Each structure stands twice: as C-alpha cells, then as structure tokens.
Simulated assay, not measured.
Amino acid sequence: MNLPRHSRFSWVLVPALFAVLVAMTTFGIAFGSVGIDLPTVGEVLWHRLIGDGRTAAGAVDQIVWNLRVPRVLLAVVVGAGLSVVGAVLQATVRNPLADPYVLGVSAGAGLLAAVAITIGSAALAGLSTSAAAFAGALGATVAVLVLGRQDGRYSPTRLVLAGVTLSYLFTGLTGFVIFQSADPDKTRSVMFWLLGSLGEAGWSNLAIPTAVVLIGCACLLTQGRALNAMVLGDDTALSLGFAVHRQRFLLLVSASLVTGVLVAVVGGVGFVGLVIPHFVRLAVGPDHRRVLPIAVLAGAIYLVAVDLLCRVIVRPAELPVGIVTSVLGAPLFLWLLRRSRAGR
C-alpha cells in the first residue's frame, strides 16, 4: 500500500525526534552555569537509577540529580503539554492565532499569583502561589465558558473574544497589584514568575504536572478525527456524526486544565503553543492524528533547548524562560505568516 508523502514522513520523523529529545535532555543535564562532562552525568544517572548507593562527588551528584534532572524533565513536560494544547485550541476555536493563553487562563493565573506573592497567602485563604495560580486559571476558564456560550452553544468567535477581553482585564489588575506593592523584592518575584521560569523545578513539584500532562495528552491524542472535522466547520462535523458543541466544551476544559497546572508550576511561557503546532503542520500536514503526537516531541525538544539557552547565555545568572521563547517565537511566527502569505 502506498502511503501519502506526509504519512511516510511522519513515521520517519517520530523516531528521529525522539532521538533528538534524548540528546537534548542529556545536554540539558550536562551544561549550565557549571559544566559537567557527559561520562560523569552518565555515571550519576546510572548509580541513581540502579540504587546501588554509589554516587559521584557530593556537589556533582546534587547538581545532576536534584537540580538538573527534574528541571529538564519539567521542561519536557511543559513543552509537550503547551504544544499539544496549542494545536487542540487552534482547531477547536478555528483560529490559527490561538494558543494556550488565548482564553485568558495564563492571565487569570498571573493575577492570583501576584496577589499571593505581594499581599500574602492569607489574602487567598492560605493558598500557596502555585495553588493560587491554579485557582486563577480555573476561574478564568469558567468565566470564558460562561461568556462564550450563546443560545446553548459555544461559539468559537465568542470564546476567543471573551478570552482576549478577560486577558486584558486580568493583566490590568495584575499591573495594579504590582504597582501597589511597596516591597521591591516581591515585585521582582512577581515579574520573574510572570515571565516564566523552570528554576523552582524539583522532584516534589514534578509529579502533578507530569501526571496531568500524561493523562491530558492521552485524552487529547484520541481526538484527532474530531479536530479534523471541527476545522472544516460545525456543520460538516455534525454531518460526520460528531457532537460538536459537547466535544468543544470537553476539549476546552481539558486544554484549560492542562494549561492551568503548567502555568501554576512555571508561570507564563508564551509562544510555545502558538508556534510549534504551525511548524508541525508544515512538516506533516494538517491531519491532527499526526500533528498531535509529533507536537508532543517537538514542543518538549524546543523548551529543553530554550531552558538550556536561558542557563548559559548570562551565566552564572539565568534568564526567565518566557523572555527567550518570546524573542525566538515572534520572528519565527512572522516568518510563518510571510510564508503562508507567499503560498496563497
């Protein structure tokens, strides 16, 4: 049987991307403000994984196992989650400019996180910064779903407009909270969190986002045919037997929950969910049965590489991840727009 060109390419691309991901995670563990040679990294990982009690020098073991390994794994999880969610949202709301933050989820999380950092957890019934951010993400999701509903249905246009409007509102309120803060250290903490950072990664805060992304991606990866139908329009999807409005609601809730958990852990990391799905479609075509699994690998590779750049560009200090994703993402997206325009 002769497979279409994109299908044949997809089968080749998956193992190739997986190999690149393994290589990038290895480099991400080895390089940083303190360079560690690859054999030493391999030794630490081997002894830790087999649990024989033998380790390298104390400082090296701590850097590799307790700092860099959870950080790189979190970058894999966040990059994969944001990319898949971006691809799903672009199809669900039929808007190529949609990304995980188009529905105001990130802005809602940022508002309550800013309150928790500047005013204190007591103002939010004792919630920690991460818990407050997740609560803000959920609140934003509920508000968008309520505002985006029209005649018992969820209109893609209304959802996007509601999300953009609420994003501006939450961003303005966040700015007011920061402006009212009299503590410069807290203000810097809020700004660093809003720009996104993997610096707080550790084994203790890796389990929840990993579980959520695994479950969320497993559910979303099964929706390729439904997303293909939605891109063609609601009437076409209905004629193909899909319960479009119920399906759109479930997809939006799933995507928002994944985004909310990731934002609560790492803050705002933009452009990953916007740019990566476009590049994936460019490589493998518009079929979401191929786009979604490849977006998982591409997004993970991209964020691991970006985090590595953040740690080595201005070492021994580090840049917030959101700065680098924006600086890289904006010109990449402009190039995609130009290419799309030339193609038309």
Rank of each mutant, 00 (worst) to 15 (best):
Q90P: 12
Q150N: 14
L74E: 06
G175F: 06
F242W: 12
F170V: 05
G260D: 08
G79D: 00
F18C: 14
L73C: 09
T157L: 15
G58R: 13
P156A: 06
V314W: 03
Q150M: 13
V12H: 11
I119P: 00
T118V: 14
L195C: 05
R315W: 02
P100N: 07
A98Q: 03
D37L: 00
I63M: 02
R48P: 02
I208H: 03
G152N: 12
I178S: 10
L194G: 07
S239H: 15
G53N: 07
R315G: 10
A59S: 14
I29D: 02
F242A: 03
G108V: 03
H278C: 09
Y154Q: 08
V190S: 00
L38G: 03
P286K: 01
V327M: 12
I36W: 01
G152M: 09
E200Q: 15
R246Y: 07
L21E: 02
G224I: 10
P320C: 10
V84R: 01
V115P: 00
A133M: 01
S256P: 10
G108D: 00
G126K: 08
L252R: 04
Q247C: 11
R339L: 07
P156C: 06
L97D: 11
R341K: 12
F242E: 12
V72S: 05
A131I: 05
V253T: 13
V327Y: 00
L21M: 11
S128G: 14
G108M: 00
Q247Y: 05
L332Q: 03
H245G: 12
G202C: 05
S83L: 04
P15I: 05
A255Q: 03
F9E: 05
A122T: 13
T141V: 11
R290V: 07
D37I: 10
A87L: 11
A143M: 13
R289F: 07
S167M: 06
L221C: 13
V275H: 03
T259W: 02
A140C: 09
V88G: 00
A283W: 09
L337S: 08
Y302F: 15
L194W: 03
V265S: 13
L297G: 04
G202W: 01
L303Q: 04
V115M: 06
G233M: 10
L89H: 01
L67D: 09
G260Q: 04
A243P: 14
Q90A: 11
T210L: 14
L49G: 11
G35P: 00
D185F: 10
R315L: 06
W335H: 12
F31L: 13
A133F: 05
D185M: 10
F27N: 00
L147G: 08
G86M: 03
V69L: 15
S83K: 01
Y168W: 14
G267M: 10
T141N: 06
H278S: 08
P96F: 00
A123F: 09
P331L: 04
H278D: 07
S33H: 06
A113Y: 01
G196H: 08
L38H: 08
V280E: 07
L17S: 15
D234V: 04
T222S: 15
G35E: 13
A125K: 06
F170Q: 05
V177T: 07
C219S: 11
D287R: 03
P209S: 10
H47C: 01
S239N: 15
